[in-house]
């Protein structure tokens, strides 16, 4: 078993894009500002379609906006034991 984590760099990318507001990004991707906030805070993982739409706003490939990590449970168990 493994834990899957998706992280993103949207906040940094917005800052680099002339400090684009969350509302502006939301308008360009057709979602609400609350959804952008939730994605940035890691509280919601977008669908593939929305992820592509966000990447398109920044003119970047998907993997430069979102990254995928796999953390092995065994690794976590070992760390807990050490602690």
């Amino acid at each position: 078993m493994s834990q899957q984590l998706i992280s993103n760099h949207i906040r940094k990318l917005r800052f680099n894009a002339d400090e684009m507001t969350q509302q502006a990004l939301a308008d360009k991707t057709g979602v609400t500002r609350q959804t952008i906030v939730a994605i940035e805070n890691g509280k919601y993982f977008p669908t593939l379609e929305l992820a592509f739409r966000i990447a398109r706003v920044f003119n970047l490939p998907l993997e430069e906006v979102f990254s995928f990590h796999v953390e092995e449970d065994t690794k976590q168990t070992t760390e807990k034991k050490i602690k």
Binding site: G30, V31, T32, T35, Y44, P46, E49
Partner: peptide, 8 residues
Amino acid sequence: VTLRDERD
């Protein structure tokens, strides 16, 4: 807000 997106 009247818009309902995928998260909603």
